Simulated scan of single mutants.
Amino acid sequence: MQESFLIFITKISLYPTVIFTGLVMFVTLYWLVSLIGMVDMDTVEFGDSGSDTNVSDLSSTGFFTGLMLKFGLYGVPLIIILSLVSLIGWLLSYVYTSFLHQRIDSGILYYLFGTGALVFVLVVSMWLTGIIISPIRKSIAKIPKRNAANNIGKTAIVRTLSVTDKHGEAELNDGGAGLILKIRRDSDSVELPLKQGDKVLLVEYLNDSGAYRVALAKDK
């Protein structure tokens, strides 16, 4: 058992699998931190989220943005995209390391073939991730935007450790499972710092960031 574990550790530490191992460790840590409310998840959007994205015309976009659009990696939280790419890439590169890469012991060929496998695995991982998140993206797009306006004036509970003009989440009791909303506060606010458990009033919906501007709710 111990020998098998050591072999497993050795394989996931080999190039190129080690790169995806590092990514999996990163996203796992991110999810753990998110569960205790220290970070919030931002959805990847390009252009007007209310319109169809033209993935055939990438002349005005950067290389990275164009790549994301080509593979359909948008419309859902970035951490979900990164988690799927990392996990799929880790599994594929682990198979490569186990059955093919270990047969190449030459230094130059080792890294040459490894780099080629890394690029191939990354492309396949992004392609599969785009397929997986496609129905999720479509479901999110069907959520009526009027819900945002309907929430104005309601009270929510802060779930992150703090709230700033760039970060924060709150839970709104909608009579069902509850809604997790991104919230922001004015940077020049004179109110006491908002913290986890505070009640906040949803004052305004910020279209640019997809978040609500909030203020501390006054107890009546």
Results as ranks from 00 to 15, higher is better:
Met1Ser: 08
Phe5Ile: 15
Ser13Gly: 15
Pro16Thr: 05
Val18Thr: 13
Leu23Gly: 04
Leu23Lys: 06
Phe26Val: 10
Thr28Arg: 00
Tyr30Asn: 04
Leu35Asn: 11
Ile36Tyr: 04
Met38Glu: 10
Asp40His: 13
Asp40Arg: 05
Asp40Leu: 01
Gly47Glu: 07
Ser49Cys: 09
Thr53Ser: 08
Val55Ser: 09
Ser56Lys: 10
Ser56Ile: 08
Leu58Ile: 15
Ser59Val: 11
Gly62Arg: 03
Phe63Asp: 00
Phe63Gly: 04
Leu67Arg: 11
Lys70Gln: 12
Gly72Ser: 04
Gly72Trp: 01
Tyr74Val: 11
Leu78Asp: 12
Leu78Tyr: 15
Ile79Val: 15
Ile79Leu: 11
Ile81Thr: 01
Ser83Thr: 15
Ser83Gly: 14
Ser83Gln: 11
Leu84His: 05
Leu84Gln: 00
Leu84Thr: 00
Ile88His: 05
Leu91Cys: 15
Ser93Met: 02
Tyr94Asn: 13
Phe99Pro: 05
Leu100Lys: 04
His101Arg: 06
Ile104Tyr: 05
Ile108Thr: 12
Leu109Arg: 01
Phe113Trp: 15
Thr115Trp: 08
Ala117Gly: 00
Ala117Met: 08
Leu118Glu: 09
Val119Arg: 02
Val119Thr: 02
Phe120Gln: 02
Phe120Asn: 03
Leu122Pro: 06
Val123Gly: 02
Val123Pro: 07
Val123Tyr: 02
Ile132Leu: 10
Ile133Cys: 02
Pro135Gln: 02
Pro135His: 01
Lys138Pro: 03
Lys138Asp: 14
Ser139Gln: 12
Ala141Pro: 09
Ala148Asn: 15
Asn151Ile: 04
Ile152Val: 12
Lys154Asp: 01
Ala156Thr: 00
Ile157Gly: 00
Val158Arg: 06
Arg159Tyr: 13
Thr160Leu: 04
Val163Tyr: 04
Asp165Gln: 11
Ala170Trp: 03
Ala170Leu: 10
Gly176Ser: 14
Gly176Tyr: 12
Ala177Pro: 02
Asp186His: 10
Asp188Leu: 06
Glu191Cys: 00
Leu192Ile: 13
Gln196Asp: 06
Gln196Phe: 11
Gly197Gln: 07
Asp198Pro: 07
Val200Tyr: 06
Val200Phe: 05
Glu204Pro: 06
Leu206Gln: 10
Asp208Arg: 05
Ala211Val: 07
Arg213Leu: 15
Ala215Arg: 14
Ala217Ile: 03
Lys218Tyr: 04
Asp219Thr: 14
Lys220Leu: 12
Lys220Arg: 12
